[in-house]
Amino acid sequence: MEVPVTVEDSWNAGGHRFSSRLLMGTGKFRDAKTMADAIRTSGAQLVTVALRRLAGGSGGTDDLLGPLLELPGITLMPNTSGARNAAEAIRAARLGRELSGSPFVKVEIHPDPRHLMPDPIETFEAARVLASEGFAVMPYMPADPVLARRLEDAGCASLMPLGSPIGSGRGLATAGMLRIIVRDARIPVIVDAGIRAPSEAAAALEMGCEAVLVNSAVAAAGDPVAMAAAFARAVAAGRDAFLAGLMPRGADAAMASATSPLTAFLSPVSP
């Protein structure tokens, strides 16, 4: 009798293997305990943190991140938020690696606080330098297929195009471009930013994205821990649907395709 073999569905970035397809940010939570509980519930294995200068003369322990660092199985991914150009992002990445011991860096360079759109030129330059220094570079980027290819060729570990502006909750506004990036990429594509509802995370996985990165959608939810659980299930369902293969979309929105026989309703069924 053949024994069915269960192959774990995992993905790989920068030589590291992950089973969870939900990445979590640590911002905006009302307190550290809620953050840690939500991240534990989400099952996230890659978790972003930011870097800031210490306020003058204050101590070096960080109460906010203490509970997070006690969670098992978490790899930190320091981001470079606050950097306005490649040089600042490179400096932040090196500091983040010194503090975390993690090779992962979320390169995030957004010079304009109104829209927080990533600067593609500075992002590319930072990614190129950091990849050559051995970082597992995860660039937050506009949903631009041409830039995606350039970042991939520069040695990035993944591509992290935005669904819509950071914290906007406008969902997958870039869906058309995301599909092109997913179709052409040879490294994982992770939708970062804009996701509000678990259904949007599921949609990203259904179109073939490897994972999603979520922060505000969980942190600013009515019940962040319950929302983390909802996202974990949505991401798993979206992945299962992708693997199962969606049915083809009808060519004409005005045309149906019957699922039941339409003829011979009142006639005897012919033998």
Partner: peptide
């Protein structure tokens, strides 16, 4: 001298 630490962020 500049001192940095981790803070919450997305």
């Amino acid at each position: 001298i500049e001192l940095f630490r981790f803070v919450a962020g997305g």
